[in-house]
Computed example of a mutant assay.
Amino acid sequence: MLPMIHRVRTAADFARTVRSGARSGRRNVVLYGAKHPASAPSRVGFIVGKNVGNAVTRNLVKRRLRQVAAGWVAANPCGYDVVVRALPPAGEADWPTLRKDLLACLGTVERKLGRSDQAEQEGGVS
Rank of each mutant, 00 (worst) to 15 (best):
E120T: 12
L102D: 07
A22W: 09
G49H: 07
A38R: 15
R64C: 06
V48E: 07
D13E: 13
R43L: 03
G123D: 06
P77W: 09
F46I: 05
G33N: 03
N28A: 11
P96D: 08
G25M: 06
G53V: 05
V109W: 01
L102C: 04
F46R: 06
A119I: 01
V48L: 05
G49V: 03
G124R: 00
Q67G: 14
A104P: 05
R23P: 00
Q67T: 15
K35S: 14
V68A: 07
A55C: 08
V52Y: 04
R111A: 14
A70D: 11
A22P: 05
E92T: 14
A34F: 05
E122Q: 15
L60D: 11
V82H: 01
A12D: 12
A34Y: 00
A12K: 10
N59F: 05
A12T: 12
V44W: 05
A11V: 11
R43P: 00
V61S: 03
R27G: 02
Y32R: 07
V29D: 04
L103H: 12
R43F: 04
Q67K: 13
I47M: 04
E120M: 11
R111Y: 05
Y32S: 06
V52Q: 03
K50P: 03
E110L: 11
C78D: 14
R23Q: 08
